[in-house]
Design a protein around this nucleic acid. Structure first.
Lengths: 217, 217
DNA sequence: ACCTGAACACCGTTCAAGT
DNA sequence: ACCTGAACACCGTTCAAGT
């Protein structure tokens, strides 16, 4: 029996393709992702991929849902705010490591894993004693925060890494006169003034606000 | 003097290209935007564009900044929360009409107009009597909400328009058993249970929370 | 200085052929 | 049933040539 080169000879499958594509996007970004490159990585011809995924768009949808499956949904039954906080934290982690995912996430219809996650969030909120209106609104506020905040964080990370001089240099020096508040803010970023858990801070703003709105009406 | 066909013979310029590109993306989406199509729309050869924009990436950056320039920045001096609310509302409007913009916005470094807008937001927050830590965090919370909420809204709009049967039919009927909370939520969407100004509701959650956090420390 | 067609190196995907 | 190379209709962009 001839020894095959590493893992190259497992048969193709949707899962194998999706995993390879997620790994590639994690490393090189989704804009560099190409059907041909994924095929190369899997050691097969481009067209072989089309036996397992309909097209690139559906492959991207599958990748997003693979990421969604990594998120730990909130536990039902205990303290609802603690459950939301814990689940949001895992979602934040997952979306940060798959830094290409938030942008794709928000533009696509949810797949099975994401629907399961949505349902779990709504389940917890529904049993939190909130009015149905606040469940509806709170769900949007929380999911908006999870993907929106992470997306913003990824944007900052892109801008502030790499050539620090590009930004701290020309950028800051040129614009400090005209835009002092902006300059101070960028300085705070470069100084790492995160003040701890910013993601959780804004989430608590939302969660506390929901609680208060519920009690107040 | 020969009568020229409509507006076709104005000389090319960066502004003219950017405006045409924004109009095209508004109508057909940014994923359909092509250098060749923009050139056709302007009645010139593809390569003529490159005399005024360095490449497609820089053109997209210019388009985003053109959108940023449409946003009315908050007024300094009056009630800070009212100012933030008013400005956020115009930002929400602008980003909704240019539905391709939020996704591009969050992935790119800010251009001049967006920097001016960022500075104005920070200016208002800085004079609101908030601690510098709350200015920093509040700024992120507000900008996150503006683009994140709008992005989410656009995603829903995409999913829920078009074939309503696709969603209300197969989608809802199939998954109502397994995911009842999700099904109820989609029903609420289809019924139009917006309950008024959802964007403003979440913004107030954030603004009120900042106020309270400031008073409490 | 601005414009432009031809050409190049890529894409995603169809098709017809292999096993 | 799964795989695959050739081919097609597109991309963004370089280059050399026009005015």
């Amino acid at each position: 029996m001839p020894v095959e080169s590493e893992t190259a000879r497992q048969p193709l499958s949707t899962q194998r393709i999706l995993h390879a594509a997620v790994g590639f996007a994690d490393e090189h970004g989704v804009e560099a992702l190409t059907m041909r490159k994924i095929a190369d990585e899997l050691g097969c011809g481009v067209m072989s991929l089309y036996n397992h995924v309909a097209n690139k768009e559906e492959m991207l949808a599958g990748m997003v849902d693979l990421v969604a499956a990594e998120i730990v949904p909130p536990a039902v039954g205990g303290d609802w705010r603690e459950a939301m906080r814990a689940s949001a934290a895992t979602a934040h982690d997952v979306l940060l490591t798959h830094h290409w995912a938030p942008a794709e996430w928000s533009l696509r219809m949810p797949g099975p894993a994401r629907i399961r996650y949505m349902d779990a969030l709504l389940h917890v909120l529904s049993e939190a004693g909130l009015s149905s209106e606040l469940v509806y609104r709170g769900y949007h506020a929380v999911t908006m925060h999870i993907v929106g905040f992470t997306l913003q964080q990824i944007g900052y990370r892109r801008g502030l890494t790499g050539d620090l001089e590009d930004l701290a240099g020309a950028f800051l020096a040129d614009l400090a006169d005209d835009y002092p508040y902006m300059a101070a803010h960028v300085h705070a970023h470069l100084a790492g003034d995160g003040h701890g858990d910013e993601f959780g801070f804004v989430l608590d703003l939302i969660l506390d606000g929901l609680d208060r709105a519920n009690a107040g009406s």
